[in-house]
Write a protein that binds this DNA or RNA. Structure first.
Length: 273
DNA sequence: TCGCAGGTGGTCG
DNA sequence: CGACCACCTGCG
């Protein structure tokens, strides 16, 4: 199988990238590599640190040609962005510095917009194993070649058709959103995102961040509420204040900051169990 | 058994 | 507007 190898990759860690809540379709192998699919191509990614380094090393993408790397994976992995610089700025805040230390290899994936929309509608009021299961069921049952069904395909289905996917009440959101996309095209910004059925402020921010690469998007979910209460003393119920805090302190990198915070609190939570 | 999980839409005041 | 509350489903 062909493979693509890239040395000298900085600020990169597969666990951090695939376990910070931004994607649901990558599977960790026993050897620590990850297998998954994006933009119709399935690959296996591995990362080997340079000797003595904990953030710089060599990326190996099994199943990818150089052309695929240039066209897909380079932008998918956000490799053109200088995270060192961003982390340096964010780390002026000592709380953020601590979070960055834990998730230093996080990168914001640039994902397919439609898949991101579908994935995060499914994610609402749901838990991760079930989210992953639903997405797999949807791809297997109604997609082609392992991909999620297109807007046209989804729009042609009924809630009854989707019953085996076990989406619960989200099925009708998905169908309605698919119809809206067929009618109006894909959304281009937060305002258009929130017109979609089943897309409120939280889901819209996730789609904006992971599907539209708007790094200033700051999704506030239960974990962010938890971590911002714990780290910054903001009351858990005060979402407005959290958004203001993010805008003032993280600015254009709110989404990246959110991912460090999210990963951090999830890790802390695991350690406390 | 029942509350809960990466929220949202509908309904009131 | 902001505060509630029902909602599919599966797991502990």
């Amino acid at each position: 199988m062909e493979k693509f190898v890239l040395e000298g990759v900085k600020d990169f860690n597969l666990d951090h990238i695939f376990d910070c809540g931004q994607c649901f379709r990558w599977k960790k192998e026993e050897d620590g590599s990850y297998t998954g699919k994006a933009f119709g191509k399935e690959v296996n990614m591995d990362f080997v640190y340079d000797e003595g380094s904990d953030s710089e090393g060599t990326l190996i993408i099994n199943g990818a040609s150089r052309e695929d790397f240039d066209n897909i994976w380079k932008s998918y992995l956000d490799l053109d962005r200088d995270y060192s610089q961003i982390k340096e700025e964010l780390a002026e805040d000592p709380v953020m510095a601590k979070a960055i230390e834990k998730g230093r290899g996080i990168r914001i994936l640039k994902q397919d917009l439609w898949e991101t929309i579908v994935s995060f509608i499914i994610s609402q009021n749901n838990n991760i194993p079930r989210i992953k299961g639903c997405i797999e069921n949807l791809a297997k049952g109604f997609g082609e070649d392992g991909n999620l069904p297109t807007p046209e395909k989804l729009a042609s289905l009924t809630v009854e058709d989707l019953a085996p996917v076990r989406l619960g009440y989200r099925a009708k959101y998905l169908i309605e959103t698919a119809k809206q996309v067929c009618e109006n095209g894909l959304p281009k910004n937060m305002e258009e995102l929130q017109q979609l059925c089943g897309v409120g402020p939280k889901v819209a921010n996730c789609i904006s961040l992971f599907g539209l690469s708007d790094m200033s998007s700051f999704p506030v979910d239960v974990w962010v509420k938890r971590v911002m209460n714990r780290m910054y003393g903001i009351p858990e119920g005060n979402k407005k204040e959290m958004e203001n805090f993010a805008r003032e302190n993280f600015g254009d990198y709110g989404g990246i900051a959110q991912q460090y915070l999210f990963y951090y609190i999830r890790q802390i939570d695991d350690e406390e169990k």
